[in-house]
Design a protein around this nucleic acid. Sequence first.
DNA 1: GACCAGGCACATC
DNA 2: GATGTGCATGGT
Length: 221
Amino acid sequence: MTGKKLIEIYQLLLDRFGPQYWWPGETPFEIITGAVLTQNTNWANVKKAIANLKSANLLTPQKLHNLDVLQLAQLIRPAGYYNIKAKRLKNFLAWLFNDHNGQLGCLEELTTDRLRAELLTIKGIGAETADSILLYAFDRETFVIDTYTARIAARHGLIEPEADYEQLQLLFQSNLPADTKLFNEFHALLVRLGKEFCKPRALCSRCPLEKLPHNLEIEYF
DNA sequence: GACCAGGCACATC
DNA sequence: GATGTGCATGGT
Protein backbone atom coordinates (compact mmCIF):
# COMPACT_ATOMS: atom_id res chain seq x y z
CA MET A 1 0.00 0.00 0.00
CA THR A 2 1.30 3.37 -0.92
CA GLY A 3 0.22 6.90 -0.18
CA LYS A 4 -0.13 7.45 -3.87
CA LYS A 5 -2.77 4.78 -4.17
CA LEU A 6 -4.86 6.16 -1.30
CA ILE A 7 -4.60 9.63 -2.76
CA GLU A 8 -5.77 8.23 -6.09
CA ILE A 9 -8.81 6.73 -4.40
CA TYR A 10 -9.48 10.02 -2.66
CA GLN A 11 -9.25 11.97 -5.90
CA LEU A 12 -11.46 9.48 -7.68
CA LEU A 13 -14.13 9.78 -5.01
CA LEU A 14 -13.89 13.55 -4.90
CA ASP A 15 -14.26 13.74 -8.67
CA ARG A 16 -17.24 11.42 -8.54
CA PHE A 17 -19.15 12.76 -5.54
CA GLY A 18 -17.77 16.24 -4.93
CA PRO A 19 -17.13 17.70 -1.47
CA GLN A 20 -19.43 16.37 1.25
CA TYR A 21 -19.22 19.38 3.61
CA TRP A 22 -18.85 17.36 6.81
CA TRP A 23 -19.55 17.33 9.69
CA PRO A 24 -23.19 18.43 9.40
CA GLY A 25 -23.40 20.57 12.54
CA GLU A 26 -23.16 24.24 13.38
CA THR A 27 -21.10 24.11 16.58
CA PRO A 28 -18.52 21.82 18.16
CA PHE A 29 -21.08 20.75 20.74
CA GLU A 30 -23.62 19.87 18.08
CA ILE A 31 -20.95 17.76 16.38
CA ILE A 32 -20.10 15.99 19.61
CA THR A 33 -23.77 15.31 20.32
CA GLY A 34 -24.27 13.99 16.81
CA ALA A 35 -21.21 11.75 17.14
CA VAL A 36 -22.78 9.99 20.11
CA LEU A 37 -26.28 9.87 18.67
CA THR A 38 -25.18 8.39 15.35
CA GLN A 39 -23.63 5.30 16.93
CA ASN A 40 -24.96 2.40 14.86
CA THR A 41 -27.77 4.68 13.72
CA ASN A 42 -28.95 6.24 10.48
CA TRP A 43 -28.14 9.93 10.28
CA ALA A 44 -31.72 10.80 9.30
CA ASN A 45 -32.82 9.65 12.76
CA VAL A 46 -30.06 11.63 14.42
CA LYS A 47 -31.21 14.78 12.66
CA LYS A 48 -34.64 14.43 14.24
CA ALA A 49 -33.16 14.04 17.70
CA ILE A 50 -30.91 17.06 17.24
CA ALA A 51 -33.85 19.06 15.90
CA ASN A 52 -35.73 18.21 19.10
CA LEU A 53 -32.86 19.50 21.21
CA LYS A 54 -32.60 22.65 19.14
CA SER A 55 -36.29 23.48 19.20
CA ALA A 56 -36.24 23.00 22.97
CA ASN A 57 -33.29 25.42 23.01
CA LEU A 58 -31.23 22.89 24.95
CA LEU A 59 -28.26 22.20 22.70
CA THR A 60 -25.54 23.62 24.92
CA PRO A 61 -23.27 21.79 27.38
CA GLN A 62 -24.66 23.72 30.37
CA LYS A 63 -28.31 23.12 29.53
CA LEU A 64 -27.91 19.42 28.80
CA HIS A 65 -25.77 19.05 31.90
CA ASN A 66 -28.62 20.47 33.97
CA LEU A 67 -31.33 18.49 32.21
CA ASP A 68 -32.78 15.36 33.78
CA VAL A 69 -31.46 12.25 32.05
CA LEU A 70 -34.98 10.87 31.51
CA GLN A 71 -36.10 14.08 29.82
CA LEU A 72 -32.98 14.01 27.67
CA ALA A 73 -33.78 10.42 26.70
CA GLN A 74 -37.26 11.39 25.54
CA LEU A 75 -35.94 14.25 23.42
CA ILE A 76 -33.41 12.05 21.62
CA ARG A 77 -35.85 9.16 21.15
CA PRO A 78 -35.82 9.25 17.35
CA ALA A 79 -32.10 8.41 17.35
CA GLY A 80 -32.75 5.00 18.88
CA TYR A 81 -30.96 3.47 21.89
CA TYR A 82 -32.19 6.62 23.58
CA ASN A 83 -31.74 5.53 27.18
CA ILE A 84 -28.13 4.48 26.77
CA LYS A 85 -27.30 7.45 24.56
CA ALA A 86 -28.78 9.88 27.09
CA LYS A 87 -26.49 8.33 29.68
CA ARG A 88 -23.52 8.56 27.31
CA LEU A 89 -24.12 12.25 26.68
CA LYS A 90 -24.40 12.74 30.42
CA ASN A 91 -21.12 10.87 30.90
CA PHE A 92 -19.41 13.21 28.47
CA LEU A 93 -20.87 16.26 30.20
CA ALA A 94 -19.91 14.97 33.65
CA TRP A 95 -16.33 14.68 32.43
CA LEU A 96 -16.44 18.12 30.79
CA PHE A 97 -17.78 19.82 33.92
CA ASN A 98 -15.83 17.84 36.50
CA ASP A 99 -12.46 17.90 34.78
CA HIS A 100 -12.55 20.85 32.37
CA ASN A 101 -14.71 23.55 33.90
CA GLY A 102 -17.60 22.80 31.53
CA GLN A 103 -15.77 24.65 28.79
CA LEU A 104 -15.12 23.00 25.44
CA GLY A 105 -12.56 25.75 24.86
CA CYS A 106 -10.45 24.31 27.68
CA LEU A 107 -9.99 21.16 25.62
CA GLU A 108 -8.13 23.12 22.94
CA GLU A 109 -5.17 23.28 25.31
CA LEU A 110 -4.75 19.51 25.40
CA THR A 111 -2.54 17.60 23.00
CA THR A 112 -4.39 15.35 20.57
CA ASP A 113 -3.04 12.21 22.25
CA ARG A 114 -4.10 13.44 25.67
CA LEU A 115 -7.54 14.52 24.51
CA ARG A 116 -8.10 11.20 22.74
CA ALA A 117 -7.02 9.24 25.80
CA GLU A 118 -9.35 11.25 28.04
CA LEU A 119 -12.29 10.86 25.66
CA LEU A 120 -11.75 7.10 25.64
CA THR A 121 -12.11 6.96 29.43
CA ILE A 122 -15.72 8.17 29.10
CA LYS A 123 -18.19 5.29 29.10
CA GLY A 124 -19.94 5.37 25.75
CA ILE A 125 -17.12 7.07 23.85
CA GLY A 126 -15.23 4.47 21.85
CA ALA A 127 -12.51 4.86 19.25
CA GLU A 128 -14.70 5.99 16.38
CA THR A 129 -16.73 8.46 18.42
CA ALA A 130 -13.55 9.86 19.99
CA ASP A 131 -11.88 10.27 16.61
CA SER A 132 -15.00 11.86 15.10
CA ILE A 133 -14.98 14.39 17.92
CA LEU A 134 -11.24 15.00 17.51
CA LEU A 135 -11.40 15.52 13.76
CA TYR A 136 -14.74 17.18 13.23
CA ALA A 137 -15.23 19.15 16.46
CA PHE A 138 -11.59 19.99 17.28
CA ASP A 139 -9.89 19.90 13.90
CA ARG A 140 -7.24 17.39 15.02
CA GLU A 141 -5.26 15.24 12.59
CA THR A 142 -7.05 11.97 13.33
CA PHE A 143 -8.51 9.64 10.70
CA VAL A 144 -11.93 8.25 11.56
CA ILE A 145 -12.55 4.56 10.93
CA ASP A 146 -16.15 3.48 10.66
CA THR A 147 -17.94 0.38 9.40
CA TYR A 148 -17.99 1.64 5.82
CA THR A 149 -14.31 2.49 5.83
CA ALA A 150 -13.40 -0.93 7.17
CA ARG A 151 -15.65 -2.71 4.68
CA ILE A 152 -14.37 -0.75 1.70
CA ALA A 153 -10.73 -1.20 2.70
CA ALA A 154 -11.21 -4.95 3.14
CA ARG A 155 -13.16 -5.50 -0.06
CA HIS A 156 -10.66 -3.61 -2.14
CA GLY A 157 -7.71 -5.43 -0.64
CA LEU A 158 -6.25 -2.35 1.01
CA ILE A 159 -5.90 -4.33 4.23
CA GLU A 160 -6.60 -7.77 5.64
CA PRO A 161 -10.29 -8.24 6.48
CA GLU A 162 -9.44 -9.05 10.11
CA ALA A 163 -7.66 -5.75 10.63
CA ASP A 164 -8.69 -3.96 13.80
CA TYR A 165 -9.40 -0.27 14.33
CA GLU A 166 -5.81 0.68 15.07
CA GLN A 167 -4.46 -1.09 12.00
CA LEU A 168 -7.02 0.58 9.77
CA GLN A 169 -6.29 3.97 11.24
CA LEU A 170 -2.56 3.41 10.75
CA LEU A 171 -3.17 2.50 7.12
CA PHE A 172 -4.66 5.90 6.41
CA GLN A 173 -2.57 8.00 8.76
CA SER A 174 0.76 6.57 7.68
CA ASN A 175 -0.01 6.78 3.97
CA LEU A 176 -1.55 10.23 3.81
CA PRO A 177 -0.26 13.69 4.69
CA ALA A 178 -1.52 14.73 8.12
CA ASP A 179 -4.09 17.22 6.88
CA THR A 180 -7.38 17.68 8.68
CA LYS A 181 -9.12 18.92 5.56
CA LEU A 182 -8.04 15.78 3.71
CA PHE A 183 -8.97 13.46 6.59
CA ASN A 184 -12.33 15.19 6.90
CA GLU A 185 -13.26 14.95 3.26
CA PHE A 186 -11.81 11.49 2.67
CA HIS A 187 -13.75 9.91 5.49
CA ALA A 188 -16.97 11.64 4.43
CA LEU A 189 -16.44 10.40 0.88
CA LEU A 190 -15.87 6.83 2.10
CA VAL A 191 -19.17 6.99 3.95
CA ARG A 192 -20.87 8.32 0.83
CA LEU A 193 -19.37 5.49 -1.21
CA GLY A 194 -20.36 2.96 1.41
CA LYS A 195 -23.95 4.12 1.55
CA GLU A 196 -24.40 3.93 -2.18
CA PHE A 197 -22.20 1.05 -3.28
CA CYS A 198 -20.83 -1.05 -0.43
CA LYS A 199 -23.73 -2.78 1.28
CA PRO A 200 -23.09 -5.54 3.83
CA ARG A 201 -24.75 -8.41 1.99
CA ALA A 202 -24.17 -7.48 -1.59
CA LEU A 203 -21.06 -7.08 -3.66
CA CYS A 204 -20.65 -3.63 -5.10
CA SER A 205 -22.05 -3.24 -8.57
CA ARG A 206 -20.61 -0.50 -10.73
CA CYS A 207 -18.51 0.60 -7.78
CA PRO A 208 -16.57 3.77 -8.61
CA LEU A 209 -13.44 1.98 -7.34
CA GLU A 210 -13.98 -1.13 -9.42
CA LYS A 211 -10.84 -0.54 -11.42
CA LEU A 212 -8.99 -1.31 -8.21
CA PRO A 213 -8.20 -4.94 -7.40
CA HIS A 214 -11.44 -6.10 -5.86
CA ASN A 215 -11.00 -9.10 -3.64
CA LEU A 216 -13.71 -11.43 -4.87
CA GLU A 217 -12.95 -14.02 -2.22
CA ILE A 218 -14.59 -11.74 0.30
CA GLU A 219 -18.28 -11.89 -0.42
CA TYR A 220 -19.58 -10.41 2.76
CA PHE A 221 -18.39 -8.10 5.43
C1' DG B 1 -41.48 -8.46 7.60
C1' DA B 2 -36.52 -8.46 7.08
C1' DC B 3 -32.75 -5.71 6.76
C1' DC B 4 -29.99 -1.83 7.70
C1' DA B 5 -28.13 2.36 9.94
C1' DG B 6 -21.60 7.18 10.28
C1' DG B 7 -20.87 1.74 18.00
C1' DC B 8 -20.14 0.54 22.52
C1' DA B 9 -19.99 -1.90 26.92
C1' DC B 10 -20.50 -5.93 29.15
C1' DA B 11 -21.18 -11.06 29.92
C1' DT B 12 -19.57 -15.41 29.07
C1' DC B 13 -16.67 -18.96 27.44
C1' DG C 1 -8.44 -12.85 23.92
C1' DA C 2 -12.23 -13.98 20.96
C1' DT C 3 -17.16 -14.18 20.47
C1' DG C 4 -22.07 -13.08 21.56
C1' DT C 5 -25.69 -9.93 23.10
C1' DG C 6 -28.50 -5.81 24.47
C1' DC C 7 -29.55 -1.37 23.25
C1' DA C 8 -34.30 0.95 19.66
C1' DT C 9 -36.04 4.12 16.26
C1' DG C 10 -37.32 4.79 11.47
C1' DG C 11 -36.59 4.24 6.36
C1' DT C 12 -36.39 0.97 2.41
